[in-house]
Design a protein around this nucleic acid. Structure first.
Length: 1164
RNA sequence: GCCGGAGUGGCGGAAUUGGUAGACGCGUGCGACUCAAAAUCGCAUGUCUUCGGGCGUGUGGGUUCAAGUCCCACCUCCGGCACCA
């Protein structure tokens, strides 16, 4: 036995060299009779110097890898370098170095430092992401993704670091600053290459379920993906009739045609009135009997001197209310805009109408026309150059609270929402809106976050219809709505959403309370009074108010009384209340609305287009038999038309009275109007008895009829005219909705769930969504991954552009597409690769003149998304890794890494594997079976180590002082490795570990032939505990158990040589050098290839146990109990013990509890 | 605000299923060795105490023969997300 001093310097050098010479840690992909185990630590960035964090990241997991190896696994524990990245380039700029040289020199230096850890890395498998044989495969994978349609180029707003002059991922921006250099980050529009990670959002979310990861890591990923389940609900856009002149109620109906006449230069003909200076497009009223095209051609001929033009297309009509100067009359009308193109510019003078002669013709650019007509609130009735008719379009909102739809009193668009621009011609306060949009654009994300004061502008001139209530509600644009979440549009429910409430209070928008939280659900939450006596905002979990349950409930009740929401949920005038609880619905009747539309036919003769329209208010009824599902239709006796009960509202009547009267007159039924739904109606019909065209506006009622046998007298005229028919629901729908009709009663019948009132929020979310034709859907926070970086030291994106600017992937045979050398690294805001002549020449040589290379490089997160495959087969030049090698090792059994990669690297690499799997290149769904986030080692002062604080521990220095084994072991002892806490480095603690190793060394002196029986038991307990603890990565307690054993061994009679060597084996994963030295004095193969000791259960206990005796829950005595001793014997023995009688004297024994091997408790 | 996790001596931490709270290490005190110091070794070390014992795991309740561990409520700290509809 070596009884000399423990000299770590000699020993560590000696065995590191020996291991290297003997390839002790070189691993085959398969070993007969052994199961494979892939232990992985996140590879290192070659910053140039190893710090304590590296030791914690690599040396401590090495303990685990060594344990697994001694357990009989074929263990792969590889190491490589994440060698591309910003610091190399920054160093290049700062010190005028070659980033390649800097990186590779650092790697060489760090490899030596890493060897000094005594880690069992298999260096034959190492890699660097900056090696062409590595990044060639990165590019190859990019190409495969491209073919699979997972890659696209898009112009997006990106985070731009002013300092590094590059794009940053969202993850790399912390509080508006660059993660790396802490420079300011601004928003910039840039074209970049995107990877469709969102295609896999559901898989990335759902597959977390099966992973053996810490719940907190999974949760962080779930939040990052940000999946929300909710509903998409459409709000039809309602464009109120625009007034071009003074409003007059009895306007007549007159339709207009306007012509956009284009010349060969895409200019538009504009007519300027010489006398008034006003401008207009050619056009005029549509005459009776004319088609649109006939009318347009006639107007062009009447108003202009051009004759040779051809029809292009018709834009969607706009409805206007206007004043006709010549006729001195007000009109309603649809403006139909037709586009014509001049075949030649030659004018053919012809006789013009007298008053048209006074106009001057001008050719304007399209943009000017748009600005002066389309965007002009006065003339703004022309649809922009597209054919989209936004009047019939809808705004989709995403909501998780569809149960509050009845309470949606306005709608908010994000400033970037398409519809803001699309509806521009209809927005009457466009100037104001435009100014607001500009304002918002100026604000950076940071400002937007800092000032939480809500701002917004109403889009005047447009409204949308709340599909539940069928009421028009205003539309606002506000930057509290984010364009990239959901649909970029929100239905605002001030009464049930804190955010909307705040906005509504500021801009005085209406509140409608529709969900009443039940007392139970109010439960332990707290109401928070925020403003005066009207506005109450609930904030869940606030601590503003304390009180007992009763007090809180009383408070809520008082609030309900005050607000009057207790009974029906309707807020008294002027009261405002916000509560975001779920509960039972109130104030939300079934959706019974009639869809709006252009009614052209309603059981009467088809109207004739033309003059002399009369406007009239009418009412319509859906008549239902009480307690049955039979509906009333009216069939005409004179022709084959059919319709609803309907009629005009007489003077002095309210609509309800009118419809009840009409029902009686037309059918003889008496009924009750139970619902009214308002809608905009443009129902044109020709009244045969009045011989007039009539435009009617009105309401639809639902009438319920109870006693159908008891009909009253019917007007004679109606008996002649109509025959009432009772129809089933389906018959009624067919009856009233033939394709030629546009009278749609859809929603009333879609409502299968009856009245929403009294439904729970959960039920109502589903039912309301369905009844308004919405869809239940999911939305995500996760966005696609932009990988372009305007940097030199990265993997070139394998794309070239043809002379037309179209992008093409570089064919696989040209890979690796090398990073050029001839680049000046001085930053000037352009991509460094754009300055490489070699790259340009190479591109043109291969693809042809005029072709250009992509000059951006990839985000380094791409490089690290697949490196764990390359370790498996790093020499392979025909594949990134062979299927056999991947099958042997994947997925990674345990992945060690930093908490900072919880959401970025971990998510990206999971995506990468899923994408590879989709293409069929790999077999596993998930790269990492197990994952462990390590903690952080702080400086001795408890602060994060940093040069500026002067608290940095240099591991090389400590290693030279106490040895690598001590440093490894100290880091394992500093705290539980399986909990990512932060642990301060204690220099004295290191010495404590060194003392322990010294004592183990000196324990050689106690080797004898005989030993205590109890020490054998202790040894077997120690074997068990050390193995169990390493398995669950509680390395600190594994070490403390060994310490306890050594303490006992020192005090015992002595330890046998074989028991000593067993101890040395237990210690081998922790202190590989010292234990090898001790072991090799008696063996000729490495201790690290030996089998981890096995414990013998029978030796752990030897027949009897000392048990504590509790009396009334307090420990008062100890007793030794033999195995198999009966409870009664034990009880009798104990009760006779003086330490026990002291406490039980004169008291009655109520209970005797004996938990074998644990405790005895007496209750007296 | 929401979602995770955690609160135990002077410090890092231990207590695997509810069963002797404070293992192990550091620090501190006393002692041994030494001319002395360092190193090393030994003993002590939650707290109060009238030396019987009492009290103690963030706070207040509860369940249990027994609670650091389970239940309810609250407080504090750490991490993630956050004007997310």
């Amino acid at each position: 036995m070596n009884t000399g001093e423990y000299n770590h310097k000699d020993i560590e050098k000696k065995w590191q060299d020996w291991w290297q010479e003997h390839h002790t840690y070189q691993v085959e992909n398969t070993v007969k009779g052994k199961e494979n185990f892939y232990a992985l630590s996140e590879f290192a960035y070659p910053s140039g110097n190893l710090h304590v964090g590296h030791w914690y990241a690599f040396a401590v997991p090495d303990i685990y890898a060594r344990y697994k190896r001694m357990q009989g696994y074929n263990v792969l524990y590889p190491m490589g370098f994440d060698a591309f990245g910003l610091p190399a380039e920054n160093a290049a700029i700062k010190h005028n170095l070659d980033p390649r040289k800097w990186t590779y020199e650092n790697m060489d230096y760090m490899k030596n430092q890493l060897r000094s850890m005594g880690a069992s890395f298999d260096w034959s498998r190492t890699l660097a992401t900056s090696d062409p044989d590595y990044y060639g495969w990165t590019q190859w994978m990019f190409n495969q993704f491209f073919k699979e349609g997972l890659v696209y180029r898009d112009i997006t707003k990106v985070n731009w670091c002013e300092n590094d002059k590059t794009i940053l991922a969202n993850e790399q921006v912390i509080g508006g600053k660059c993660e790396r250099c802490e420079g300011d980050v601004i928003q910039k529009d840039m074209a970049q290459w995107m990877l469709k990670i969102t295609d896999f959002a559901d898989d990335l979310y759902d597959d977390l379920e099966g992973l053996n990861w810490d719940e907190s890591i999974k949760q962080a990923q779930r939040e990052w993906i940000g999946r929300k389940e909710g509903s998409i609900i459409s709000f039809p856009i309602e464009l109120p009739v625009r007034q071009l002149g003074e409003e007059q109620t009895n306007s007549k109906e007159r339709n207009i045609v306007k012509v956009i006449l284009l010349n060969q230069h895409n200019q538009v003909l504009v007519m300027e009135s010489v006398s008034e200076g006003s401008m207009d497009l050619p056009g005029g009223g549509i005459e009776l009997g004319e088609t649109l095209e006939e009318s347009a051609v006639r107007e062009l001929q009447e108003e202009t001197e051009y004759t040779n033009f051809e029809y292009v297309r018709t834009l969607s009509p706009n409805r206007v209310h206007y004043y006709h100067k010549m006729l001195d009359q007000h009109f309603h009308g649809n403006v139909h805009t037709l586009v014509y193109r001049l075949k030649d510019d030659e004018k053919t003078p012809k006789s013009l109408e007298q008053y048209e002669v006074e106009t001057k013709e001008e050719w304007w650019n399209l943009d000017d026309v748009i600005e002066n007509f389309v965007e002009n609130p006065v003339y703004g009735f022309y649809i922009r150059e597209s054919l989209i008719d936004y009047r019939n379009s809808k705004i989709n909102v995403f909501t998780t609270r569809a149960d509050t739809l009845f309470g949606a009193t306005y709608l908010v668009l994000a400033p970037e929402h398409d519809m803001v621009q699309n509806l521009k011609s209809h927005i009457t306060n466009w100037d104001e809106v435009k100014a607001y949009l500009k304002d918002v654009e100026k604000k950076s994300d940071l400002d937007r976050q800092q000032s939480r004061e809500k701002t917004g502008v109403q889009l005047q001139g447009i409204e949308v219809i709340n599909p539940a209530t069928n009421e028009p509600i205003p539309v606002w644009v506000a930057d509290y709505v984010l364009a990239h979440f959901g649909t970029g549009a929100v239905m605002a429910v001030p009464a049930h959403d804190e955010c909307d409430c705040e906005f509504a209070l500021k801009y005085d928008l209406p509140f409608k309370f529709v969900v009443l939280p039940s007392a139970g659900e109010i439960g332990n939450s707290r109401p928070l009074i925020t403003s005066g006596e009207n506005a109450f905002i609930h904030a869940a979990g606030t601590t503003e108010k304390k009180g007992t349950q009763e007090q809180i409930n009383a408070e809520w009740n008082a609030m309900y009384d005050l607000l009057g929401v207790h009974d029906d949920g309707i807020l008294p005038e002027g009261k405002r209340f916000c509560c975001d609880f779920e509960g039972k619905l109130i104030n939300s009747p079934s959706v019974t609305s009639v869809t709006t539309g252009n009614f052209e036919f309603l059981g009467f003769n088809h109207p004739k287009d033309g003059k002399d329209w009369i406007e009239r208010t009418r009412v319509y009824a859906i008549v239902k038999q009480k307690d049955t599902e039979m509906y009333l239709g009216l069939r005409s006796k004179t022709d084959d038309t059919q319709g609803l009960v309907t009629g005009g509202v007489d003077e002095g009547e309210v609509a309800e009275q009118a419809i009840v009267r009409e029902l009686l007159e037309e059918t003889g039924f008496t009924g009750k109007a139970i619902r009214k739904e308002k809608y905009k109606i443009h129902d044109k019909y020709y009244s045969t008895n009045k011989d007039k065209n009539i435009l009617s506006v009105g309401d639809v009622f639902v009438l319920e009829v109870s006693d159908i046998d008891n009909r009253q007298s019917i007007e004679q005229e109606e008996i002649d005219k109509h025959e009432p028919v009772w129809l089933t629901k389906q018959e009624f729908l067919d009856f009233i909705n033939p394709p030629s009709h546009k009278f749609i009663i859809k929603n009333y019948f879609n409502d299968s769930s009856g009245n929403f009132n009294t439904q729970t929020s959960e039920e109502a979310r589903k039912n309301i969504t369905t009844s308004v034709g919405g869809t239940i859907t999911k939305t995500y926070r996760l966005r696609d991954w932009g990988i372009s970086r305007q940097r030199y030291w990265g993997c070139p994106i394998p794309i070239v552009y043809d002379p037309d600017g179209n992008s093409h992937p570089i064919p696989d045979e040209h890979l690796p597409w090398l990073l050029p050398d001839d680049v000046d690294h001085t930053p000037d805001g352009t991509a460094p690769l754009a300055r490489s002549e070699e790259l340009q020449k190479r591109t043109e040589d291969i693809f042809g003149a005029g072709w250009k290379p992509e000059v951006d490089t990839m985000d380094t997160f791409v490089d690290s998304s697949w490196y764990f495959y390359r370790y498996l087969d790093n020499q392979n030049d025909t594949a990134f890794a062979s299927p056999d090698a991947m099958k042997s090792w994947m997925p990674v059994d345990m992945y060690f890494g930093g908490a900072e990669h919880t959401t970025m690297h971990l998510l990206y690499s999971r995506f990468w594997v899923k994408a590879l799997k989709k293409i069929g290149l790999v077999h596993e769904n998930e790269p990492y079976k197990g994952r462990l986030n390590r903690g952080l080692i702080l400086g001795p002062d408890g602060a994060k180590m940093s040069k500026s604080k002067g608290n940095v521990i240099d591991p090389d220095e400590v290693v030279s002082h106490v040895g690598a084994d001590t440093v490894r072991m100290y880091l394992a002892f500093i705290g539980p490795f399986n909990e990512p806490g932060s642990y301060p480095w204690d220099p004295n603690g290191v010495v404590g570990i060194r003392r322990f190793l010294d004592r183990v060394w000196r324990l050689q002196e106690n080797i004898t032939d005989t030993t205590d029986e109890s020490l054998i038991s202790d040894l077997h307990q120690t074997i068990k505990k050390v193995g169990d603890d390493i398995e669950r990565l509680k390395l600190n307690t594994a070490i403390s158990t060994m310490m306890t054993f050594v303490n006992k061994a020192e005090k015992s009679l002595g330890i046998t040589q074989s028991d000593y060597l067993t101890l040395v084996q237990l210690l081998a994963p922790f202190a590989p050098h010292m234990t090898e030295e001790l072991w090799m004095q008696h063996h000729d193969t490495s201790i690290h290839l030996s089998d981890f000791p096995k414990y013998d259960e029978s030796k752990i206990s030897f027949g009897m146990t000392a048990l504590p005796i509790q009396i009334n829950g307090k420990v008062r005595a100890q007793v030794v109990v033999e195995e198999g001793e009966s409870d009664a014997d034990v009880q009798n023995r104990i009760l006779a013990m003086p330490e026990v009688t002291k406490w039980t004297e004169g008291k009655e024994l109520k209970k005797f509890i004996h938990v074998p091997g644990k405790i005895i408790n007496l209750v007296v």
